[in-house]
């Protein structure tokens, strides 16, 4: 009888405890390497700012998150987080809404498709960051320009994704609902929309990464608050003790959003994951 290998090879079947250990491995490795390098640099020059120690970063977090700013009296981390999250939620939310409307109509109505599909495909090819200056010139450097960048950067991709899942709905379903008395509106919004909604949320999850990119970029260029703004501000002072926790915080926020959306999909559309099997 063959014993399956523990970790290596096609037939490996590690036990549960080992799997958990393996998940942790890369995280632990990165942290250990960092601490070792940080320690080595600080031993050579205690004033070194490039690789701050854990306690230095702890001080910075204390300063940014739990103490009022000396100049404005604000708690900067929370203020930045709120500003950034507001922008990203409005930007991505409106993009999702528009993408659902466009995707449904392009997918179902040939007239719509003829007019808009090629156009949207083209728009999706425009590099959003390249039109950032245009947005700032047209809409000013206020909130609207930043939200518009996130919107323009994400809605064409989501539209195409939703369009593709609309045309994947078997034609039998369309005919069937027409024979059951559906009007074209009922067909679109009562039969097809609920079927593509979970897919649209998956599409949103994939777009969130890009949305963060656009957010940070626009905040880096012109803003007075926000996570991206703070990181680029701190860069001037080589304040790695602030930058590294900020990056970790953004990563955590992104991960949490993604997790919540996948949870929403599983709870609200239990048939979706199951019927894919």
């Amino acid at each position: 009888m063959n014993k399956p290998p523990l970790v290596i090879g096609l037939h490996a079947s590690p036990p549960a405890w080992l799997k958990r250990l393996l998940i942790l491995l890369p995280f632990v490795l990165v942290i250990v390497v960092y601490l070792w390098a940080s320690d080595a640099r600080l031993a050579e020059n205690p004033a070194d700012k490039i690789l701050p120690s854990l306690s230095q970063m702890g001080d910075a977090i204390q300063r940014m998150a739990f103490a009022p700013d000396r100049r404005t009296g604000d708690y900067l981390l929370w203020q930045d987080t709120l500003a950034s999250l507001t922008r990203i939620v409005i930007g991505v939310g409106s993009a999702l809404l528009v993408a659902i409307l466009l995707g449904l109509n392009i997918g179902l109505f040939v007239g719509f498709r003829s007019v808009l599909l090629a156009f949207i495909t083209m728009i999706a090819m425009v590099p959003p960051l390249a039109i950032l200056p245009i947005l700032f010139i047209a809409f000013g450097v206020d909130e609207f320009g930043k939200v518009a960048l996130i919107f323009i950067g994400t809605f064409p991709i989501m539209t195409r994704d939703i369009y593709l899942s609309v045309i994947k709905v078997p034609s039998e379903q369309l005919v069937k609902s027409l024979t059951m008395g559906a009007s074209s509106m009922a067909l679109t919004y009562r039969i097809i929309l609920p079927q593509v909604l979970p897919r649209a949320i998956d599409s949103l999850r994939l777009c969130l990464g890009a949305a963060w990119l656009f957010l940070i970029a626009s905040e880096a260029i012109a803003a007075t608050e926000g996570l991206g703004y703070r990181i680029f501000l701190m860069r001037r002072y080589l304040a790695m003790d602030v930058i590294i926790p900020y990056v970790a915080w953004i990563t955590f926020l992104g991960f949490t959003l993604d997790f919540l959306l996948s949870l929403l999909n599983r709870k609200m559309f239990s048939w979706y994951a199951e019927s894919k099997k």
Binding site: S177, M180, Q195
Partner: peptide
């Protein structure tokens, strides 16, 4: 296609996002 004729296909006659009862009620 309209309610003058009903259709039962080999596959995909039921709507995956509705329970059996809701599928029947849909009409």
């Amino acid at each position: 296609p309209d309610p003058y004729r009903g259709i039962v296909f080999q596959r995909y006659s039921l709507f995956p996002h509705l329970s059996v009862l809701d599928n029947v009620l849909l009409g």
